[in-house]
Structure formats: structure tokens, C-alpha cells
Amino acid sequence: MPTTVVLGVIGSDAHVVGVTILERALDAAGFEVVNLGVQTEQAEFVAAATDHDADAILVSSLYGHAEQDCTGFHDHLENAGVDAVTYIGGNLAVGQDDFAQTRATFESLGFDRVFDPETDPTEAINALRRDLNLTTEPDRLRVTS
């Protein structure tokens, strides 16, 4: 059974490049990908996760308003009975905050993992493999030389 990942850019953020590349990387790594694209509301993530019985939800945000866009997100997921690991990545805070602080903020919102904007898709994929106890051949996952 394929492992299904829902991904999208939350809020009114229109940064499309990162999520497009992440979609391709996940696809190439053997995941079933549901890419909701940019400007995706919380409700759309919840609906897609329910409809596709998602194993993981990957949220992207690059315009600095992630915290307000994500407030209450995990309550909605829980209410809808979604049981998926949740990651978030991107420019999560405006300004020069240090990343440890940002990570703590988003972990307290309920995300399982928090990534900075320099993260290579490989890192997210490796994390998914571990968190979901997947057993695919490791070299299937090699995405950068």
C-alpha cells in the first residue's frame, strides 16, 4: 500500500517553487503525493488528509506569517480524526529570530518536525522514512549525489 503525503503552501502565500520541487522529490521517492499547491487553507489540508487517508502532511510557508496561519491547525486535524505526522518548513518567522526558537514555537503548535528554508528534500524524505517506519531500499531515496 502506498504511503500518502499531502502537501501545500498554507495561508495566502503564493511561493510555488519549493512545493513543486518537493512534490517531484516525494514522487520520485515512491510516495503517493497530493499537492494542494499555494494559498491553501487549513480546511483544505484537513479535507485532503481525510479523503486520501494521509500518512503525512507537509506544510510549507515562505512569507513569514506561518504562526498565525497554523494556529488551531492540529485541533482541526484531531477533530477530523486525522492520524498523520505533520511537518512544516520554510521561512517560518519574519526577521532574524534564531531557528531553535522558531522550532520550539512550531513544535508547541503540534508539528512533529520543523525545517528551515535551506532544507534539501532528501532530509524531509529521510525523516518521513524514519517516522513512518518505511522499509524501502535506502538507495531508492538517494536524491542528491
Binding site: 517553487v17 531557528f99 518536525r113 525545517f115 528554508p117 532544507t119 532530509e123 529521510n126 542528491t144 549525489s145
Partner: peptide, 26 residues
Amino acid sequence: VDAISNGRLIGRPSESSRSGGVSDAD
């Protein structure tokens, strides 16, 4: 996509490996 901001025109593998992300994945 990142090549020019990293100082190059083409994103060769040796260049792209320069930028490692900070995360809690490892």
C-alpha cells in the same frame, strides 16, 4: 533554482551540496 543566489549560473551537484539545511531531521 538556487544557483544564481549561490553564486553560479548552473546548479551543478558540487555547488548544491554547499548549502545544508538546519533542521531537526538528523
